[in-house]
Every structure is written in structure tokens, then in C-alpha cells.
Simulated scan of single mutants.
Amino acid sequence: MQIPFLNRLQSLSGAVINKVVPAGNGAEHQEAAQVLQRVLEGLPELVAAAVVQIDSGQAVATYTTSRDFNPAKIAGFNAALVRGQYNVLAALQPDSDEQLEEIVITLPTQLHLLRILTNKQQFLYVAVESRDTNLGIAREVMRTCE
């Protein structure tokens, strides 16, 4: 049942868990929510995911399984990482046609993947537990969900 007051109350207590949440009502937000839904179908053991604007660092849609892991809060930091990597590539290869596709961050217990979407203005962020998901599978799911 959709009760706006209860939905609003849940969002005040932290990140909404186990639900894809678009950040607005526009077509861009709905498309981002659909991308996250496809990722969730391919990676049901997902910890968190988001579609994020590269320029602003704003999350367009998010998903998380834990109130302690809020992808909307870390979206800006990940966007800064992507923008920084663009600057590094420009400095290393100023005349190259090479394009950044993804960034993989490996931690002892988690994998964090950032994949630039085909529109080049957003990226898909996914965090998974390394014991639950193979890196190759996570990369393939992200590649096919755009």
C-alpha cells in the first residue's frame, strides 16, 4: 500500500532500504530506477547501487540494503573520483580517443564498481560483498543493464 506519509517518515529515518528510490519524478529518474532494477535482478545480493550525475554528484536513483550504507551520501565523492580520473587521462593522453569505461575499487570484504553510462553524463555505482559476488559477474551485469 502506498501511503505518502509513511514513505516520507521512512526516508527521514535514513536511507530507504531494499527499494529502488528515484530522486525525482522525471523521465531521467524513472530510467535510472529501471537501470537499478535490472542490476538488482542480475545481482540480488547487492549491498548498494546508484545512478549518479557526473557533473553535480547528485544521485538520480538509489538502492541499499542497509541504513548505514547510504549511496546518496557517497555519490558526490564517487563523482569527484570519476572527474579526477578524467583529468588524469587528459593529462596522460591529451590526443587519445581512449574513454573511461569503469573504475573498480577492491576492499577486503567489498567490491565497488563505477561504470560510465552511454550518455557520458552519468555513472552506475554498485557495491557488493566480495564473498557473495564474482567481479566478472558484477562487471557483466553492469555492462548489460545500461
Rank of each mutant, 00 (worst) to 15 (best):
residue 14 G to W: 05
residue 10 Q to T: 15
residue 130 S to V: 04
residue 43 L to P: 04
residue 23 A to I: 04
residue 101 E to M: 01
residue 83 R to Q: 07
residue 93 Q to D: 09
residue 133 T to F: 09
residue 116 I to W: 00
residue 8 R to Q: 13
residue 111 L to W: 09
residue 85 Q to P: 00
residue 72 A to C: 05
residue 12 L to R: 15
residue 96 S to W: 03
residue 4 P to L: 13
residue 22 P to H: 06
residue 109 T to H: 13
residue 101 E to D: 08
residue 100 L to K: 06
residue 91 A to L: 10
residue 134 N to G: 03
residue 59 A to D: 08
residue 35 V to S: 00
residue 37 Q to F: 08
residue 129 E to M: 05
residue 62 T to R: 02
residue 55 D to Q: 14
residue 83 R to Y: 01
residue 15 A to G: 12
residue 37 Q to M: 12
residue 13 S to W: 06
residue 26 G to Q: 13
residue 70 N to Q: 07
residue 76 G to Q: 03
residue 49 A to F: 02
residue 22 P to Y: 04
residue 133 T to Y: 05
residue 146 E to R: 01
residue 47 V to K: 14
residue 68 D to M: 08
residue 48 A to L: 06
residue 125 Y to Q: 02
residue 97 D to C: 02
residue 10 Q to N: 15
residue 136 G to L: 11
residue 45 E to D: 14
residue 25 N to S: 10
residue 142 M to F: 00
residue 61 A to L: 12
residue 8 R to V: 09
residue 3 I to W: 06
residue 82 V to Q: 06
residue 41 E to V: 03
residue 98 E to T: 15
residue 72 A to L: 06
residue 132 D to H: 10
residue 42 G to N: 05
residue 138 A to V: 07
residue 131 R to V: 09
residue 47 V to N: 14
residue 43 L to T: 06
residue 119 N to I: 00
residue 31 E to M: 13
residue 70 N to E: 07
residue 126 V to L: 08
residue 5 F to Q: 07
residue 96 S to H: 04
residue 26 G to F: 08
residue 41 E to T: 06
residue 104 V to N: 08
residue 83 R to H: 02
residue 11 S to L: 06
